[in-house]
């Protein structure tokens, strides 16, 4: 009787654990952290580019919230919400083969279902004071206005990123705000973009000392 009960409990647990193992990582990825208590950096990476570990950081002000928690988060992505909760940005550090890095394609997964519309979008390109170059476009997505920006590391960050290098890297930012207020949030995207820093070592020295969001 005792053995039979244990078997039943085991079966139930196995079913529960299996279900949890499938559902929990995705659920945890949607859980907001506590808002930042002070101005801090969010670092993505490393992403291996031609054998070099590339990091990308953006600086956030107090009150920003990172979405997602737990051991299942990808270290090349970050989902952020502005302090007023109205603006969301998905950041992704992407490595691409140079051969595939052409035209107006958006590398990585961040742009997701917008990809087909982005292919026919009108893009702008800006050289930033940081030395980076950013290509971007803006389009309506339901009740939101979405800005997709693809940021390139400044020349010289990747020592092997010459013209013949087979790989490149981009920081992709997909930012959404309600269309009615989208113009006002453009500076938020601008600040994210302008604060981006690329490096071959973790900005805080070791990844374990990264800002806890």
């Amino acid at each position: 009787m005792h053995r039979r009960g244990a078997a039943i409990v085991t079966v139930i647990l196995c079913v529960a654990v299996g279900a949890a193992a499938f559902a929990v990582p995705a659920t945890l990825a949607q859980v907001p952290s506590s808002p930042l208590a002070s101005d801090s950096a969010v670092t993505l990476g490393p992403v291996n580019v031609d054998g070099e570990p590339l990091y990308a950081s953006v600086t956030l002000s107090r009150g920003w919230t990172r979405i997602g928690m737990g051991p299942f988060l990808r270290d090349d992505r970050a989902s952020l919400v502005s302090p007023d909760g109205a603006y969301r940005a998905l950041l992704e550090l992407v490595r691409v083969a140079r051969a595939d890095d052409a035209g107006d394609a958006v590398p990585g997964d961040a742009a997701g279902e917008l990809e087909s519309r982005l292919a026919s979008a009108t893009w702008s390109t800006e050289a930033l004071a940081s030395g980076s170059e950013v290509r971007y476009t803006t389009l309506a997505d339901g009740e939101d206005t979405v800005t997709v920006a693809i940021l390139d590391p400044p020349d010289g960050v990747l020592t092997g990123s010459g013209a013949s290098s087979p790989q490149r890297a981009h920081l992709v930012v997909v930012a959404a705000a309600p269309s009615a207020d989208a113009d006002g949030y453009r500076t938020v995207t601008a600040d994210l973009i302008s604060s981006a820093v690329f490096s071959l070592s973790h900005p805080s020295g070791t990844p374990t000392e990264d800002v806890q969001l």
Partner: peptide
């Protein structure tokens, strides 16, 4: 838990 917002926060003026 939902997202905790900061009252009074506004985007930087353009």
């Amino acid at each position: 838990g939902g997202i905790q917002t900061t009252e009074g926060w506004l985007p930087r003026p353009a």
